[in-house]
Design a protein around this nucleic acid. Structure first.
Lengths: 204, 204
DNA sequence: CTCGTCGTATGACATCTGTCATCCGGCACT
DNA sequence: AGTGCCGGATGACAGATGTCATACGACGAG
């Protein structure tokens, strides 16, 4: 009785994207009507093909799946949003939910969960892994300020304080202060550990 | 006239693995007869199902796809080996080839390349991306010694020299010496950059 | 209007990191 | 027998990093 569900697939790795499309193509009530490889192509494609559900990977060039979700949520609020990601990072789940996502799946869940999630969000349900939800709640919100995040992100690659200062238009001392407070907030002992932990939590 | 090609799929992310299986299932001359999620389950499965081609992801628990390839190459030399990876790292390509792989594909290649590669390796051809091959040759071999690699790998997470020394049963000074020589060999300015570069090249 | 927080900055200090010279034993190649 | 590399170690030194106290203007919550 119902129409087939029109799905948009956003994922940058062609092989994975096309494989997921093949997988969803096996379901007779689901049709993948659009595929994009970049976050900044999501909105136009969703609009053009009048999709019911957008399936968004997080790590993408152009814009992240989370950013794309936020945009879709305000521009096309009827579109249901499923975030699909390699990394089950608590911070990702949190920001996905804040940007209006209806489902959050990790790629190491069984493939059957995917079609299931598509149907559930369309029925108005939300789909999230309870373990991950618990982790996200236990961690609390991202404790870093905007600047601390920026500096930490820039410091990940191993740049020196002088380079960071130049790149961010700050004094060297200020860079050190930000890194120092970030290190304390995260309860670690140096910038590398701070970066690792923040990355792992999905806070960068 | 020929039988269907029996393929083993090794990939840890269920959703991706099953999606790839769906993709290959669309080809009538190819049949996925076995799926595993760990590197150390590859050999047994390949043996049990008498597969023609093994499709191996690199990043897997238990053993990497490269290690699995090396094992298959000596134990079941008739099995053709296709390495499939997210990261087109020159060092990965080099070690894949050294361990007897017949094809090396990155996941952001078009999906059609996958079935194509399976058929080609079975016909005795080798399949590698020319750009990546050039990069691998240009980079030369891994310049790091075993110990340098170990120390660098351990240092990635941000551990201090004292922790590294304890973990590796070395003196602090020796740890610093290894890191120092690694830093010089890689022509970078600190351990973080050294780790980043070595990781990117596939040398860790 | 005041308090707290953020962004920014400085200076002083202690510790960690990276470099260098030098040493030893083992092992492979010539 | 000698040369060179690897694993391992020490000590000294310079420079980078992390901590702390302190300061100021902007801004939002109360």
């Amino acid at each position: 009785m119902s129409q087939t569900i029109k799905v948009l697939l956003a994922e940058d790795q062609s092989m994975v994207r096309e494989a997921l499309a093949a997988l969803l193509g096996l379901e007779d009530d689901i049709e993948v009507v659009a595929q994009v490889a970049r976050g900044d192509e999501v909105l136009a494609a969703a609009r053009e093909h009048a999709v019911d559900v957008a399936l968004l990977d997080i790590e993408m060039p152009g814009a992240t799946g989370i950013e794309a979700a936020a945009l879709l949520h305000t521009e096309l609020p009827a579109v249901k949003l499923v975030i699909l990601t390699t990394f089950g990072r608590p911070g990702y789940l949190r920001s996905a939910m804040e940007s209006g996502a209806d489902a959050f799946l990790v790629k190491d869940a069984p493939a059957a969960k995917l079609a299931e999630a598509v149907r559930k969000v369309l029925a108005g349900e939300r789909v999230i892994d309870p373990t991950l939800a618990a982790a996200a709640l236990a961690d609390g919100a991202n404790p870093l300020t905007d600047r601390e995040r920026e500096v930490l992100r820039a410091a990940e690659g191993g740049s020196t304080n002088a380079e960071l200062a130049a790149a961010l238009h700050l004094s060297q001392g200020t860079v050190r202060n930000y890194l120092s407070t970030a290190i304390q907030k995260l309860a670690v002992r140096n910038r590398a550990e701070a970066a690792r932990l923040a990355r792992e939590k999905g806070w960068l």
